[in-house]
Nucleic acid binder design. Structure first.
Lengths: 207, 207
DNA sequence: GTCGCTATTATTCAAGCGTATAATAATACG
DNA sequence: CGTATTATTATACGCTTGAATAATAGCGAC
């Protein structure tokens, strides 16, 4: 009964591998199919190891959700340049790979479907959502101010809700049925829609 | 060992009850928690009965998904009146209960997260999505024509994608964090946004 | 080098899963 | 009113699940 040889992973690395394997399994097999054993296979370890790094499978899944939110919001929150460029990039980033792809929405949906069930996931979700919308709202405040338009809190709030909805909705459409759209079509529609909503050019001529 | 007494349900009714119980369980416990036993308890029967009405649990779940799509699209596809009223009602219906509530999005998300996994669900999803967007596109074509605006296919397509995105996105926002919005706020934002996008009043003054 | 620590494997366990089968209660029909 | 039909219950089966435990292989310290 010889024991299989193995490799000791460096500090923290195995944790990350397990989280990534968890997400792979959820996107490929659904939450149901993401079993401890399946995740371990994907990570190239045995099932028992999960409990060496996490208190429970549920805790590992919760951390995996944090990773998903980060992957969906990090890039868009780090836009740089003048207000117009930042707004344009924010929209484009959210409607282009890797943020907009079928894996992303599978993961997002899997967790969203659990928000009512699991208070821990609900809290993680709410934080991420508010951060995302606040980022957009500040972006819009800067943009409107730069354009010499009214930028009071109430106006910014309404615009943030509308554009957040627009971007989210197009993101969902693109993720779920990307093949129904031409290359760059969703981004183009989002840009011209945002211009119509805000009543201002956002410099899409440059493209 | 006395056997519990029971009631024989009329034609087709039990089927419907089982589907409804399936949806209840999915929204409350997630897809994972929607087990045959739990569903049976909710429906007030024993687990074995499921297989008397459905070939398998998976088939029952697929039919439950059809029911969800129907509940999300039926009302909006039956709008009546002049083009302007129909468009206005279409938007309002999708952003008001019962279409917009947390149970709806739990169910929607649970199934969306399975679309990549299960080809049967993927097919059901695609049909529903295309039907929904076509309804909206025809609505817009009528509306633009009535307003004397250009209503060629390409224009309608772009508007349909944009407004579908807007409505879907606001629907998601409202379902997930309804408490962050004032009564009627989402509908109001959707209406004014649609007007800005289309460059036309849609008669929200009446309100 | 070898010793001690711990990351990893291997194995086991009880609980819960979807399904299959047989007994039986409720209804329809002559 | 008796009998055939079938919707429903009750029970059992084999399998998978997340978790617990004990053995051990890898690796840094000395």
């Amino acid at each position: 009964m010889n024991r299989r040889s193995f490799h000791r992973a460096p500090e923290g690395e195995r944790r990350q591998e397990l989280i990534e394997a968890t997400l792979d399994c959820i996107s490929e097999f659904g939450l149901k199919g993401a079993t401890v054993r399946q995740i371990a296979i994907r990570a190239g370890v045995t099932a028992g190891l999960v409990r060496h790094y996490f208190e429970s499978k549920d805790q590992m899944v919760a951390e995996a959700y944090r990773a998903v939110i980060a992957s969906l919001t990090d890039k868009a929150s780090q836009v740089e340049g003048d207000p117009e460029t930042r707004l344009r990039d924010f929209i484009a980033i959210n409607l282009t790979e890797p943020v907009a792809d079928s894996r992303s929405i599978s993961l997002w949906a899997a967790f969203i479907s659990q928000v009512r069930v699991d208070p821990v996931l609900a809290e993680i979700h709410r934080e991420g959502y508010l951060a995302f919308r606040n980022t957009l709202q500040e972006l819009l405040a800067d943009f409107l101010a730069a354009k010499g338009k009214p930028a009071d809190a109430e106006t910014c709030r309404a615009f943030a809700i509308a554009i957040n909805g627009l971007v989210d909705g197009l993101w969902v459409e693109g993720c779920l049925a990307g093949d129904l759209f031409r290359e760059g079509e969703l981004v183009a529609i989002a840009m011209s829609s945002a211009e119509a909503l805000l009543g201002t050019s956002i410099g899409t001529a440059k493209q």
